[in-house]
């Protein structure tokens, strides 16, 4: 039992070093901003396709790569205001949009780095690690996009915004799912993705043993 505990502590030490190093690098503003941009670009297109009734843009907040600002307006209202401006002889219409902010680190980056650390420390071949990192990234990314979709759907149905008028049953289900999608659930999703990608019928026992013993045996 002592040897297992010692090996586990060593594994934990390696995890802290790797995860801590990656977190520190991600906190460098230029790195954080680059990750934010890479995340926002496809997400904006996906969400724009999903919310056809809204003008939606995901923007980075200056000097704060942690924040993604979702700016939106109803296409119907924009059209109406543009028409009103045209009728009253104005060349430009002033359209009031709304926004809300999302923590990029709490939504994606911190938890993706957690997944990266888990996969890199798993006793797999380089190819398996590369596949795991890619598939894991896609799965976790889709989970976060789904979470953003639910948050925006709920937001767009608020009476003062009212871009969408989703049925109360569907909206209740969406809001209930969103309610359960906390930071704790993010961790859980990462763990499930990792276990699903890494453990196999013929390796899971070896994997458990080698995960706690690998660093001792590597010497």
């Amino acid at each position: 039992m002592q040897s297992i505990a010692k090996a586990a502590l060593k594994y934990f030490g390696f995890f802290i070093l790797l995860y801590g190093a990656m977190t520190l690098v991600s906190l460098i503003p230029s790195v954080g901003a680059a990750c934010n941009t890479v995340y926002r670009t496809p997400t904006e297109s996906i969400l724009q396709a999903l919310f056809s009734k809204a003008y939606l843009q995901l923007k980075e907040v200056e000097d704060n790569p942690n924040i993604i600002r979702a700016e939106f307006a109803s296409k119907e209202i924009v059209k109406q205001q543009t028409e009103d401006a045209r009728l009253s002889g104005k060349t430009k219409a002033s359209i009031q949009g709304k926004d809300f902010e999302i923590s990029f680190y709490n939504l994606f980056l911190s938890f993706y780095l957690f997944l990266v650390a888990l996969i890199l420390l798993s006793p797999l071949t380089k190819k398996e690690k590369a596949v795991g990192l890619f598939v894991g990234m896609v799965l976790y990314y889709l989970y976060t996009v789904f979470k953003m979709y639910l948050a925006l759907l709920s937001h767009f149905n608020e009476p003062e915004i009212a871009i969408y008028h989703t049925g109360s049953g569907t909206l209740n289900v969406a809001q209930s799912i969103l309610f359960f999608m906390t930071l704790g659930t993010n961790v859980l999703v990462v763990l499930v993705i990792w276990a699903w990608l890494v453990f196999r019928k013929n390796n899971w026992k070896d994997m458990l043993i080698s995960t706690t013993y690998r660093f001792r045996n590597a010497k």
Partner: peptide, 22 residues
Amino acid sequence: VQGGFIIFTMISVILLFVWINW
């Protein structure tokens, strides 16, 4: 966030592995 959720969860996962090994 990192220390609270992620590292603390990692401790619980490692404890689980230790138990399974045991």
